[in-house]
Structures are given as C-alpha cells and as structure tokens.
Write a protein that binds this DNA or RNA. Structure first.
Lengths: 342, 342
DNA sequence: TTGAAAGCGGTACCAA
DNA sequence: TTGGTACCGCTTTCAA
C-alpha cells in the first residue's frame, strides 16, 4: 500500500543522480562503470524497491527469456513430471515458462500456439503432440521460432524430438524376466491404437525371438487402465493359458489390478502357502510412468522413463535451438531405467 | 523460412494504405471505422501473417493478460489437477499462465515471485504455500499486485485463500460408514505434522462424538504413503483391535496398501469365502486426491476434493482481484464430493 | 472516420 | 566512465 506507482529506471536514475543509460548499464553489468556509481545506483534500486520490467527490455532488444509449453495433459503423471523437469532447468537458467494445455486430442494446440506467439516467446515446446503437430512445425519455422517436440513415442522425423526408448524398455524388462527363468511371458494392457504400446511390443517380441522363446498372439491382451479390468483380464488369461509364468504390464494401474487379481485368485485356488503360489506361478513386471516408491507392495520389476530428466533434456535442447538458429534437426532418445525390488 | 523478419503494425498499415493508429483501432475494435478500411486492414493482417505483440501492448497501456503461478510441486496429482483447472479457466478468458515451482519447502518461492514480478504479471497465485507465504503477501501488497493463495488446509487469514473443506470431507466419509452400520471406525495414514490431516481428524472425531460412538486414540495410526507400510499397519491395527469394523484411509495409496493387506490377511485367515470375510470384517473408505476411476478395484467410498474446480475458482478469484483493486479479502472453502461404488 | 504524435520502460549507439 | 537520444511495437489522446 505504501507505493502503488511503478518504479522505473528513471526514478532510479533520478535518485542516484545519474542518467538512465548508466542505470541500465549497471543493471546489466555491461559497460565499465566506476564502483562508486555502481554503489549509488544499487542503493537507489534497493531503496526504491525497483523491479526491472523485462517486457520493455525484450521489446527493445533481445530475447524475452520466456519459452512456451503446450502440454497435452498436465494431469498425466508423465507430463506433470516432464513439465516439472522442464521448468526446473529453465529456471536454473533464469528463463521462465508459459504454460498452455493442448488437450488430449490437440483441440487447443493451435490456440495455445497463437497465444504463445503473441506473447513473444523465444521458443516453443510441444509435449504430447497430436495430429496438429506437423502443421505447427511448419508454422513455427515459417515464423522463425524454435520448436521442440517431446513425446512418449516416435513422432515427426523432420523436427526436434525427444522421446523415451520404448523398444529398449520392453527389451530390458523382458530380458529381466527371461534371466529369472521365465520362458512363457504374456503381455497385459494398453490399447492397440497406442504407438507407445506398439513400440514396446516390438521390443518384447524381438527379445523373445532373440532368446528363441515362444510367442503367441493370444498372450497379448488389451486392457483399459482400470484395476478392475486388469484383475479380470489377468485371471481370464491365466485360466486359458495356465502355462504362462510371467506377465508384462503396460502401466502401474494395470500392474496393481493384476496384482489384486492374483491375490484373489491365489486365495480362491486354495493353495496352502500364499508365497509359494505366486512365486511358483506368475511373476509381474511393469512399465512405470514415474518413480513409484509408493507402489511398493507390488512385487516384480519396473522399467521407468525418467520423465523429469527428459524435461531437462528438452530444456537444454530448446535453449540450444534458440542460441544457434541454424542448429540442425536432432532427435534424442532417453534410455529407460530398470528398477528391481527386494 | 519464407520470412524471418517480424511483421509489425507498421507493415500492416503500409500494406493496407492506412496509418498505424487505424490498424490499432481495427485490431482492438474500438474506434468507429468504416467497414471498407476494416476489410483492407484485416486482409493485410491475414496476408502478411501478422501476430500482435502483446508485450508492447501491455507496455503502453493496460494489463499483460498474464498471471503467475507459484506451485509447490507439480508432481503431486492434487496440484497438477489444480493447475490444469487454473489454466483452463484463464485460457477461456484469453489470459495466460506463467509457471514457476516453489519447491516442497518453499525454497524457490521467493525467486519465483521476483521472476514473476519482473515479467509484469497482473496477479499471482500461490498454490501450496510454505512459511514464506506471509512475507510474500506483504511484499505483494506493497507492490500493489493481487495475490491469491490456494492450499490444502487453512492458511493465512489476512489473505485471499481458497481451500478444501477437510472437516466436512471427513465428516461425510465417517457419516457414510456409520450409516452403513459401522460403529468402530479407525483411521489409517498421514503424518501427525500434517495440517490437512489434523483438520480431517477433527471432522472424524466430531462425527463420532455426534453419533455417540467410541473414539480411541490407538485407533488413529500414522503411516507413510507407502502401500507396503499401509498393508502392515492395517494388519497390526486389526490384530490388536479385532473389533474395528471400518478404516478411514488418508489417501489412495494408503487405501490400496490397506486393501492389499486385507487381501493377504483374508487368505491367511483361512476363511472360506473371500467375499464374506471382508464384508463382515473391515470396510474401507478413503480421501482421494483426484478422480480415481483407475483405482476401481478398491471397495468402499471415496471423498474427493474437486481440485480442478478449485483451480477454476482460483482463476475467478484472481481475476476479480485484478479487476477491482479494492475488493475485500475473501476466503473460499470448496466442498468435497462423496463417491460410493457399486 | 482517420492520421499525427507522444509516450510505456528499457537498451544501446554515439558523443562527450 | 557517463550522458543524450533514437528507437522497440503498440495504444491513445487530439486534430484534421
């Protein structure tokens, strides 16, 4: 309430008894200024509570220091984590993030893009692009704005693209099971329309073949991300294919559902020992979206995509692109991390 | 690649054969302009692919149309959902969001605050404030910037504050159990240092007393948000207090863990029927962070704080504050929603 | 109905 | 080492 009027460098200049250009120089630490005036200016700044207006600065010369993000859906743990990593890295560089949501089907991607352009961002990140992506890429480079894509599966080839290595993730998980003695490994979860799933399935199949293990299409079952459906699905699967000894789950929800299903089936089977039933029958392994320390009751291995790290990589990439306009297109594939318990 | 140079209203004015002021008027739809020139200008805009620079606009005249968010931790589902609701509502009003993270202990709140100020935001939202909050509130109103807090429990009194009604949430959940015939209801989860938990416990106790039901401090057990620990904790609890017939879980993770624990205990108990064991022994109910359609295997009721709605309310509140500077301080309590399954 | 011109808060070049 | 000053892109009186 003390002072409602905005303080500008003029006020500072006046108070310090110097010119605005001097103040500007002190602020940006550019020209060689005598420590005496430097002092005076800084004192004035302090005393008046001056806050520099970056918009004005950006208007005149350089960059706004702001990069825009169009994220598919913040509510998805993966994207939330990615966004967190991205802001972290940007803030560490004194930059900021403009947030917009694209929507699950990209309905609002275009609007977001335009809003960001109006705000004069230095670059744009699109996390989880929809079909709209290609058009925006063209638009962006028509306008000369650096654009980087981050996604969960392969995307456009002729654009910077950072994504997880789904193939390798599946491979590692499958290999892990094989090395633990499993020969008959099934797949549970995901929708067949998912590209991420397709890439993972590729890694799974490849690994099975590589080890000369059987592969049956009936062992690959789709399933909505619901615990209940996963529980039912795994039991149906095992009932029809009792020889299956391990199941790869497409995500944590499915894994939990499967685990619930197994617990109940185990009970119903009338086995004597709880432990022996599961250890001797079905092992679980799953793809995790983020660090799942909380889900520590589910036995088995997880492979996770370090989404936060991915976010940091995205930050670096976009900053490079801003720095060197002529940087060639470059994609980056983030390696998964295998986490085994117990 | 076609045109790297930025198009300004000057270019448009030139192309349309009018003055910049005319273009500006057309753009903002203010002055009365003949539809003829209106046409010409719009064509030029279209043709040149002009994008208006909001920074410049904000510099001269009014607001930047941007509000800043300092969020404790985007990775928490609750805050992610809140943020999503907030951006949604803001975007619907043609405004945008600057995102910064404050950190779990508010380490980076101050930095974020200053960065936002430099960017010239119209207002600031702090979601999940730490101790730093009070200082920032003072700072904000020294600088004359509207500030709104959003949190999971009560916070500062002399500031706008939007939060869930934890008391009522616990009350409804407890009442739900009582009406289903439960008389001996325990509490599982949360840390005793949590204010949210304290408020919920208040509602729980109040309701028990109100119905003349027994209340034992041994029935209230702390527990880390880990499935495993929850599973162990519930079993220990029930072993020592076999008469307990229902358990309130502090969050979904604890609820799942408890459910895992019950499933295993049920098996080990050697009951004949899976269903009967649980139905006749322990019912679960839980506080959920967000819509948990995915967690549909856990039986029992949930009460959830509509975080997304909360985000929208926050958006409205901050916009009001921006609009009417002299608006009095006002807090808002968001009612919970009870969800029962089956 | 339209145009000219004065800023908004800074930056940066050119002189002093 | 400093000061003067012409912009940056747009809004907004004030005249024409």
């Amino acid at each position: 309430m003390t002072q409602m009027k905005k303080i500008t460098i003029n006020d500072v200049a006046l108070a310090a008894g110097v010119s605005v250009s001097t103040v500007s120089l002190v602020l940006s630490g550019k020209g060689r200024i005598s420590s005496a005036t430097g002092q005076r200016v800084n004192e004035a700044v302090e005393q008046l509570g001056f806050v520099r207006n970056r918009q004005a600065a950006a208007l005149r010369g350089g960059q706004s220091g702001v990069i825009g993000l169009i994220v598919r859906d913040l509510t998805t743990p993966f994207y939330a984590e990615l966004t967190a990593g991205l802001t972290e890295a940007l803030e560490a560089q004194g930059r900021m993030l403009f947030l917009t949501q694209g929507g699950r089907d990209g309905e609002r991607m275009r609007r977001g893009f335009e809003a960001l352009m109006k705000q004069g961002v230095d670059g744009i990140v699109i996390a989880g692009a929809a079909s709209e992506g290609a058009a925006l890429r063209d638009e962006a480079n028509r306008l000369g704005v650096p654009l980087v894509f981050a996604s969960r599966a392969s995307y456009l080839d002729d654009a910077d693209n950072i994504r997880p290595d789904n193939h390798q993730a599946a491979q590692r998980l499958t290999e892990h099971l094989i090395k633990r003695g499993h020969q008959r490994i099934a797949w549970l979860g995901g929708r067949s329309s998912s590209l991420t799933r397709a890439e993972r399935l590729g890694g799974y199949c490849a690994t099975l073949l590589q080890y000369g293990l059987p592969f049956h299409s009936e062992w690959i079952v789709e399933c909505e991300p619901s615990q209940n459906q996963a529980a039912q699905a795994i039991n149906a699967l095992l009932r029809h294919n009792p020889t299956i000894s391990a199941v790869l789950c497409h995500n944590a929800t499915v894994a939990m559902g499967a685990w619930f299903g197994l617990l109940r089936a185990g009970r119903q089977s009338g086995e004597d020992s709880f432990e022996s039933y599961f250890d001797s029958t079905v092992a679980l392994a799953a793809f995790a979206e983020v660090e799942e320390e909380r889900l520590d009751d589910i036995p088995g291995a997880f492979v996770l995509t370090p989404a936060r790290e991915m976010g940091r990589s995205v930050a670096e990439r976009i900053m490079q692109r801003i720095q060197y306009a002529e940087e060639p297109i470059k994609s980056q594939i983030i390696a998964p991390r295998l986490v085994t318990r117990k």
